[in-house]
Simulated scan of single mutants.
Amino acid sequence: MSVTTVIRHRFFWPVLALVVLLVSNVFFTPDFFKLEVRDGHLYGSLIDILRNGAPLILVATGMTVVIATGGIDLSVGSVVAIVAGLACYYISKQPDQNAVSGVLTAVALGLGLALLLGLWNGVLVAGIGIQPIVATLILMVAGRGLAQLITGGQIITINSDPYDLIGAGYLFTVPFAILVALFVVFLAVLLTRRTALGMLIESVGGNAEASRLAGIRSRRITIMVYVFCAFCAGIAGLMVSSDVSSANGNDAGLWIELDAILAVVIGGTSLLGGRFSIAGTVLGALIIQTLTTTIYTTGIPPEVTLLFKALVVTIVCLLQSPAFRAKVFRGRRRPVAPPATPASEEPKVEVPA
């Protein structure tokens, strides 16, 4: 494989950006790549990046299939807050917050509500025909109010060891949140790449009307991807609230939809719909989470954090663009003038006497 082929690979620049971000942390934290096991738990900066990035990986995975159909879901942050608030509220009302049955019921209620919210978005988009950005914006705004209503405008604090396992616990020395994120990603890849489902999603994203005329039930596909996206956001909400043992209807999942969209774009999925890459989305989510960790490690002032983050993401997206690389690194090709005709080959014109 030639160097040119490697550079032209769609994952080259995202992988290079991730490696640069990881290596840059060594200058500020010499033991950044160190992994160790303490009390049967695996610790290290790389593990922290994976654990803290698990909610974003989940939300971005759901966002990928939605964008692949030509849509978008701005309500995932609100779904995170709603599910977190409902689960913590139910657990807080239990006489024994450590009861496994109560925690399982809270998880089931939260994920069940997430499925209903995803169904709501899907029906608005596919059934009624509202533009995706408008349909999901409705739940984005109203969802925050619903989350505040569930929590009573207060931060609900709980003390439940079984619930803490979801976002802060360990299983087989590995953070449980990482295992859950890997399972959901594996399931999504299995369903979209080992079955015809992925092709159907890409077909709907390429041309929904043509897909319908070809016999594909595009409306059902559209509803399904919005339900799956909300389900992923619901799991992320359980993780976020479990990690801090509390639910905040105002701040939980705030702006995670923007990071998810950025992760999808960095991963190479077009916002116009069509072909998508879940592996690229996971890579994009890791870049964003690593960038956040790098910002904290290097001590960048909080007032310029968002600006620095936007700058790095912009650079990665530009380097990933073939048109941009062609203009910057190769330059515009100048038109080549046609070769001059030799004098001996010039047509002779006879002048009459």
Rank of each mutant, 00 (worst) to 15 (best):
V3K: 13
V3Y: 14
F12Y: 08
V15A: 13
L16R: 00
A17W: 09
L18Y: 04
V23N: 05
S24C: 09
T29L: 14
T29E: 15
P30H: 04
F32Y: 07
F33D: 05
F33R: 07
L35F: 09
R38H: 13
L42Q: 08
Y43V: 01
L46R: 09
L46D: 02
I47V: 09
L50I: 09
R51A: 13
N52Y: 15
G53E: 00
G53K: 07
L56I: 02
I57A: 10
I57R: 08
L58V: 06
V59W: 00
T61W: 03
I67Y: 10
G77F: 01
S78F: 04
A84G: 12
L86E: 03
Y89G: 12
Y89C: 11
P95Y: 08
A99R: 10
V100S: 07
S101G: 13
G112A: 02
N121L: 01
V123G: 04
Q131Y: 05
I138C: 11
G145E: 06
L146Q: 03
I156L: 09
I166E: 00
G167R: 07
G169T: 04
G169H: 06
L171F: 15
L171W: 15
P175D: 02
F176S: 03
A177E: 04
A177V: 04
L179K: 02
F183P: 01
V184F: 07
V185T: 06
F186I: 12
A188M: 15
V189T: 11
L191D: 05
A196F: 15
G198A: 06
E202W: 08
S203R: 02
A208M: 12
A210I: 03
A210Y: 02
L213E: 08
I216G: 09
R217H: 11
S218W: 05
V225Y: 03
V225F: 08
F228V: 11
C229T: 10
F231Q: 07
G234N: 01
L238W: 12
V240L: 13
S245T: 07
S246R: 00
A247F: 03
N250R: 12
A252D: 15
A252P: 09
A252H: 12
L254A: 00
W255S: 15
L258W: 11
D259V: 05
A263E: 03
V265M: 02
V265P: 00
V265C: 01
G268D: 00
T269C: 00
L271S: 06
S277V: 11
T281R: 10
G284F: 01
G284E: 06
A285L: 05
L291Q: 03
I295H: 01
T298S: 14
G299P: 04
P301M: 03
P302Y: 12
V304A: 06
F308V: 15
I315H: 02
I315D: 09
V316H: 06
C317W: 11
P322R: 11
A323P: 12
K327T: 14
V336R: 09
P338K: 09
A340W: 13
E346F: 11
K348C: 12
K348T: 14
E350D: 13
V351C: 00
P352Q: 15
